[in-house]
Amino acid sequence: MSQRPSLADIRRAPKALLHDHLDGGLRPRTIVELADATGYTGLPTRDPDELAAWFLAASQSGALNRYLETFGHTVAVMQTRASLVRVATECAEDLAADGVVYAEVRYAPELHLEGGLSLDEVIEAVQEGLTEGAQRAARQGTPIRVGALLTAMRHAARSREIAELAVRYRDVGVAGFDIAGAEAGYPPTRHLDAFEYLRRENAHFTIHAGEGFGLPSIWEALQWCGADRLGHGVRIVDDIEDLAESAAPDAGPGTLSGTAKLGRLAGYVRDKRIPLEMCPTSNVHTGAAPSIERHPIGLLRRLRFRVTVNTDNRLQSATTLSEEFAKLVEVFDYGWDDLEWFNVNAMKSAFLPFDQRLSIINGHIKPGFARLAWAAP
Rank of each mutant, 00 (worst) to 15 (best):
L315F: 10
H204F: 11
A266T: 06
D171S: 14
V105R: 09
R314P: 00
H73W: 02
A247W: 09
A227W: 04
A370R: 15
W219C: 04
H191P: 06
D242I: 09
A13P: 03
A148S: 15
A247C: 07
V284R: 01
A37K: 10
L17C: 09
P296V: 13
R200H: 13
H112W: 01
N283H: 09
P5N: 10
W224T: 13
D47T: 05
E114V: 11
H232G: 03
A375S: 06
L321G: 05
V329P: 13
T286L: 08
D337P: 00
E220F: 13
G368W: 08
T311A: 05
L230G: 06
A137P: 11
T80C: 08
L51I: 08
M347Y: 09
P249W: 02
L64H: 12
A182V: 09
F332S: 11
V85E: 15
A37M: 09
R294P: 00
V167R: 12
F369T: 11
L358K: 14
R106D: 07
F205Y: 13
E196T: 15
L276Q: 07
L339V: 07
K348S: 04
S322V: 09
E220G: 13
A182L: 08
A376G: 01
R106S: 09
T30F: 04
L56N: 14
A57G: 06
E324L: 01
L300R: 04
G185E: 03
H19A: 00
H155F: 05
L339N: 10
D47M: 12
I360Y: 09
G267T: 13
P290I: 04
E132M: 12
P44S: 01
D271L: 11
A92G: 04
S359G: 15
R302N: 03
R235Y: 14
H19D: 06
R304L: 01
A182S: 08
D239S: 11
G99M: 11
T151G: 03
D193W: 12
E124L: 10
A58H: 08
A227Y: 05
A350W: 00
S349I: 00
A58W: 00
F305T: 05
F55Q: 04
P249S: 02
R27H: 14
L339K: 09
N65H: 02
S322K: 04
P253G: 14
P187T: 08
V309M: 12
T74Q: 09
A152E: 00
A96E: 05
T89Q: 12
R199S: 15
A175T: 03
A92P: 07
G254F: 02
A13I: 10
P44E: 14
V174N: 07
E220R: 11
A288T: 06
P188T: 08
L372Y: 07
L262Q: 12
D238R: 09
I31Y: 14
Y107G: 01
R81W: 02
A376M: 12
I297P: 01
V174K: 02
K261C: 05
V307T: 14
E201T: 00
Y268C: 00
D193Q: 15
R136K: 07
H21G: 07
D23M: 03
G147A: 10
K272D: 05
R357F: 00
L276M: 02
V309A: 08
G210C: 04
K261A: 13
H19M: 00
L315G: 03
H295Q: 04
V234H: 03
W224Y: 05
W374G: 14
R294A: 13
R158A: 03
G214E: 03
R200Y: 10
H285I: 04
P143L: 10
A82E: 15
M278F: 00
R270F: 14
P280E: 08
R314I: 01
